[in-house]
């Protein structure tokens, strides 16, 4: 565990907690894409299946449970909590998530390190995480309305991705056999999506229109 990895995990954790806080206390999920949240729930559910088969550390198991619990809670709130559900931008959040899930599944079946059930699903979760933010970005561009908490959520997620890349660079130079092409490329694609968003975000910000 290096400082970049820990900072990345904490940033990731903070992003999820910011979102839960917004939904739980303000009872609003305006501007939040249910599609993206459902994709993250699928990502965690397929990646952490090894929670039953391999133990790394108490920290790892604890964090996995937190990410599973929080992502499914957010989906539950948005789907089934009446007050929260009423604030959901259903008409705008129309990105077809199957267009992301199916290609990722096919890609995981074709490109993986080992052809086992757990390994293919784990690889699938990497590919899916890379693109899971897309419905959220589309929703953001459509509604052109980004409140502080939604903005912070996306900033924290982007920060988490950036820190993970620093973590991989650090591990590559300090751990003799640390080479994981699939993880790196998927992670890089994901980070580039965030970079694109930040670029757009700053252009608007500098353009004087600010953030509503």
């Amino acid at each position: 565990m290096n400082i970049f990895r820990l900072a990345g995990d904490m940033t990731h954790l903070a992003s999820v907690l910011v979102l839960l806080l917004k939904i739980h206390t303000i009872k609003s999920c305006a501007g939040v894409s249910l599609r993206t949240q459902e994709l993250y729930a699928i990502v965690f559910a397929t990646r952490y299946l090894d929670i039953f088969t391999s133990f790394v550390s108490v920290y790892n198991t604890f964090m996995k449970l937190v990410f599973l619990g929080s992502s499914f809670s957010i989906v539950w709130y948005m789907r089934y909590h009446k007050a929260v559900h009423r604030t959901y931008d259903r008409e705008q959040d129309t990105f077809r998530h199957w267009f992301l899930v199916l290609p990722c599944l096919v890609l995981a079946l074709l490109i993986h390190e080992k052809f086992t059930f757990l390994e293919v699903l784990w690889t699938f979760s990497l590919y899916l995480e890379a693109v899971a933010i897309l419905p959220q970005l589309v929703l953001l561009q459509r509604t052109r309305n980004i409140d502080n908490l939604t903005g912070q959520y996306i900033f924290l997620l982007g920060g988490y991705r950036g820190l993970y890349i620093l973590n991989w660079i650090y591990r590559y130079f300090t751990e003799p056999h640390f080479v994981h092409w699939i993880t790196w490329i998927a992670g890089l694609v994901q980070t580039l999506l965030y970079a694109d968003f930040f670029y757009y975000y700053f252009l608007r910000f500098i353009g004087g229109r600010g953030v509503e």
Partner: peptide
């Protein structure tokens, strides 16, 4: 061993 390395991240 490499397995454990890749799976120790979240």
């Amino acid at each position: 061993e490499q397995d454990l390395e890749s799976k120790d991240e979240l």
